Computed example of a mutant assay.
Amino acid sequence: MSTASLEIALLKEFNNLMEEKYWDFLSMEWPYIKPKKYHRTDLRAVPNIDEVKKLLLKRLGPIPVFFFLTVIFPTKNYPGPYRPLEKGLLLLYHLVKGCSLEDMRRFITPSTFNDILSSFYKKDKGVNNALEDLISKKLHNMFSNI
């Protein structure tokens, strides 16, 4: 197969992927999840969040982080008095780096982070796991086999 025909095939496959609208998240606004409970405390910034952002940008790049924060993370409401997007960044950092709860102490208390982890992985009783279904669908449809 010549280089020109390979480029044409790749461009065609790319255009097909873009037409299917699975990559629409790139133009999405930041999601807003209305809290189910009223918290008396104001939202706080996570200490050392710049360290988290630098590692995620270096290891993953901006598109996977944006995808996680706009498509996967907002499927649930997460406890704690911290900014929602920063909770998402901490969760992704934990997944990428493989830190223990104790390692995450320099950002937030282990008990709060455990609550966030539990909320993320918790399956709703009697209902299909929406997060698992969403991830399976996205992985199946967002990429090409070419």
Rank of each mutant, 00 (worst) to 15 (best):
L6K: 10
E7Q: 13
E7R: 13
I8Q: 13
I8E: 13
I8C: 06
A9I: 11
E13I: 08
E13Q: 12
E13K: 13
F14E: 12
F14N: 14
N16F: 09
L17R: 06
E19P: 00
E19S: 08
E20C: 08
E20Y: 02
K21N: 10
Y22V: 08
W23R: 05
L26R: 05
L26V: 15
S27I: 10
S27E: 12
M28H: 13
M28F: 15
E29V: 14
E29Y: 12
E29K: 15
E29W: 10
W30Q: 07
P31N: 08
Y32W: 10
I33M: 10
I33E: 05
I33C: 12
K34Y: 09
P35I: 02
K36Q: 05
K37R: 08
K37W: 03
H39G: 10
R40N: 12
R40T: 11
T41S: 13
D42L: 15
L43D: 10
L43I: 15
R44Y: 04
A45R: 14
V46K: 08
P47Q: 06
N48G: 05
I49F: 03
E51M: 09
E51V: 11
E51T: 11
V52N: 00
K53R: 09
K53C: 07
K54M: 07
K54I: 13
L55D: 00
L55Y: 01
L56P: 08
L56A: 00
L57G: 08
K58M: 13
K58I: 11
R59Y: 09
R59I: 14
L60M: 04
P62V: 03
I63S: 06
P64C: 04
F66M: 11
F66Y: 11
F67N: 02
F67K: 02
F68W: 04
F68M: 01
L69A: 04
T70I: 05
T70K: 11
V71T: 07
I72D: 10
I72M: 13
F73P: 04
P74Y: 00
P74H: 01
T75S: 08
K76A: 14
K76F: 08
N77F: 13
Y78L: 04
Y78P: 00
G80I: 03
G80T: 03
P81A: 07
P81N: 08
R83N: 07
P84E: 00
E86Q: 15
K87A: 11
K87V: 14
K87D: 03
L89N: 09
L90D: 11
L91T: 09
L92P: 07
Y93R: 07
Y93N: 07
Y93Q: 05
H94W: 14
H94G: 15
V96K: 03
K97E: 14
G98V: 09
S100K: 06
S100C: 06
S100H: 05
S100E: 01
L101I: 10
E102R: 11
D103R: 10
D103P: 04
D103W: 09
M104F: 06
M104Q: 02
R105D: 01
R105M: 01
R105I: 02
F107T: 02
F107V: 03
F107M: 01
I108Q: 01
I108Y: 02
I108G: 02
T109R: 03
P110Q: 03
T112D: 01
N114G: 09
N114V: 10
L117N: 15
L117Q: 13
